Simulated scan of single mutants.
Amino acid sequence: MRCWVDGVAGAAVPADDRGLQFGDGVFRTCLVWEQGIHAFDDQLTVLQHDADALGLTFDRGKLSTEMLTAARTLGSGVLKIMLTRRQAGRGYRPDWPASTRRILLAGEMPRRPVSAWSRGVNVQIVDAPRVETTALAAHKHMNRLVQVMAQRAIGGSGVDEALLLNEHGRIVGGSMATLFLVTADHVVFTPALTEGALAGCTRGQVLRHLGSLDVDVREQVIASDDLFRAQELFLTNSLIGVWPVKAIRDADSTQAKQWSVPGAVTCRLAGSMSHPLQQRMIADAAEADQ
């Protein structure tokens, strides 16, 4: 893994960094493909939105140059961009607004089986810890302990993604991906931002793509039982594109459901999105089945 801090390759992050101490920062995770950054402009726009929410300022032009330089160095893989509040000393009280420290990490793509795109993944609802529906929930800040503990809960179980609940017991989404469900009449639902869902880059792209396909898509409250009545489920994020869900079980494994995947709406969406890794994996799966 390679690292840049404020544009300097191999530089160290100071021990008093507020992102390290308090999670006082925001981040984005980008797919790098053939020396380019997928959805580059959208990623920067969402990063700016999240930084504004925390009162963080940064030079967008300078960061853009650093990101593109890192992508050319990496070739293909994952680029993580972190902006942390540049302030030394102890205590929670921050400078506001504050300039930021720019931290870039570049590494290999996590290994995923081709079948995740072609034959679907397994998901499970996890009951604890729960997401609090605060104003910060929609922003990708650097405190990700809920997601870390959710992934710990499903470790070694054969489950690919954990589905999170908020403090009201309603569905928030995945620990690393946005969740969408499709009803029998092909209406698509995803948890509303007021439910604690993350306003992710790919979430916005999917909402726009579904609209362009004349699919009725709605953001609303989703209960756990709604998932078991769904015709299709699928997951999305910047690295994977679209994953169909083939099976779900609830937190105590007393309720479960399986689907034949991918469903019709999931197929239409995946075919309309120019996500390079997804396209490669689907092509590889088709070749393997011949």
Rank of each mutant, 00 (worst) to 15 (best):
D17H: 09
D41M: 10
T134G: 10
L79M: 07
Q21R: 15
N237H: 09
Q205S: 03
V78I: 14
V182C: 14
A9H: 08
G156T: 04
A153E: 11
L239R: 07
A150S: 04
A286Y: 00
L198D: 01
I171C: 10
I81T: 02
T69R: 12
L47K: 12
D59I: 10
Q124C: 13
Q278P: 07
L74I: 06
A199E: 03
T65N: 12
T183I: 15
L83C: 11
R2V: 10
S118Y: 03
P110N: 05
G19W: 02
L227R: 06
S274W: 01
D226P: 06
S212P: 00
T254V: 08
L47E: 08
H168D: 14
L164P: 09
R72T: 13
T236K: 06
I103P: 13
W96Q: 02
F58V: 12
T236N: 07
R152I: 03
G271P: 05
I154T: 05
T236L: 04
R218F: 00
L193V: 02
D42G: 11
T236E: 05
F189V: 06
Q21M: 15
S175Y: 01
K257F: 01
S224E: 11
A51T: 11
H209S: 14
P191D: 03
R86M: 07
E132V: 12
G156V: 06
Q147P: 07
R101I: 03
L136G: 00
A197W: 00
H139T: 08
E287F: 10
F58T: 12
I81Y: 00
F228I: 10
S260C: 04
Q290V: 14
R203Q: 02
D6S: 04
A199S: 12
A51H: 11
M176G: 13
I171N: 03
I240D: 07
V146N: 13
L68W: 01
R28I: 09
V78D: 05
H275L: 07
G169L: 15
A70L: 12
H209V: 11
W96I: 08
V46W: 11
F27D: 04
R28Q: 12
A288Q: 15
T65R: 14
D95T: 07
M142W: 02
A15G: 14
E66F: 12
V206K: 01
V123I: 08
S64G: 14
T29S: 07
R218S: 01
G89W: 01
L235E: 04
P244T: 15
R93Y: 03
L277S: 04
G169T: 13
L68T: 09
C201G: 05
F22A: 08
D160W: 06
Q290L: 13
T202C: 08
L56Q: 10
P129T: 02
L193M: 04
V261D: 02
P262E: 03
D95K: 03
G158L: 14
C3Q: 15
P129A: 02
Y92E: 03
D59E: 13
G7C: 15
G169P: 14
P97V: 09
R2C: 06
H275Q: 10
G91E: 08
A51N: 08
A12L: 12
S212D: 14
I37W: 05
L63C: 10
A256G: 15
V261H: 01
V172W: 00
E232N: 11
G241S: 09
M67I: 06
A264M: 10
I222F: 01
T133R: 00
K246H: 08
T134C: 08
T29Y: 00
R280E: 15
G271Q: 03
A71Q: 10
D42C: 09
R28T: 15
T190F: 04
R93C: 04
